[in-house]
Amino acid sequence: MSEEDRVYSLDNLGFANGVRLHWNEARQQHWLLFPEGALFLNPTAVAILSICDGYCSFTAISQILSSQFRDVDINQVRNLLLKMLKRGLLINKTP
């Protein structure tokens, strides 16, 4: 199957092996760390990724976020998760 017609599911997302969140004391910042890479995370991204424990459906993630933040842009959440999924940083964990 080629990349274009791949269908991604945003349910049951969790970190792939070797991917983790990191609070950097010196920088006072949250980062996502993975093989040969690091992404700076803003507070929303931290909140989204913290819910990715491998057990939540996309709907559940959206609900949890809506209870934490006032105006959650669901499209933005979807895009972030999709981007991470495509890079192999998040994977679908089968429940």
Partner: peptide, 9 residues
């Protein structure tokens, strides 16, 4: 790349 041999690219 197309066939996604490697999950992290």
């Amino acid at each position: 790349q197309q066939e996604k041999y490697f999950p992290m690219g």
